[in-house]
Design a protein around this nucleic acid. Sequence first.
DNA 1: TACGTGACGTTCT
DNA 2: AAGAACGCCACGT
Length: 122
Amino acid sequence: MASAFSHEVIGLIAQIPKGKVATYGQIAALAGNPRAARQVAWLLHSASDKYDLPWQRVIGAGGRISLPQGKGYRLQRKLLQQEGVAVGQNGSIDLKAHQWHPNKTRLMSLTPEEQEELDRYL
DNA sequence: TACGTGACGTTCT
DNA sequence: AAGAACGCCACGT
């Protein structure tokens, strides 16, 4: 059985709307653990084939496709562009325009510390 | 129980 | 500005 954190992450990723993107760190923070960005990546890697997740909508901090060339970079870029997300030649994405901002209701369950961490992403 | 691992992120050179 | 060096964290072995 996966941890509550993992379950939360999966649920969050499933909520990212088409045409929007979120960063690994953002998802981790929303799931309650701002430091577990790597775990989010690990989860996508291992769970994307078990669930039907919009994995392509999760990118690296600063708005960059994090998937290495030859290991999905090309596909992710293609999928995002098909959704209307502008992806630069270098894999850069304008977060200002495309970052997902979850509704506040789900944020009320967080501790003050987590809220503070989250402010960076909202 | 212990250790290695990764689609990360931040800080220091 | 670009790259190296660390720190982090949960999962699989």
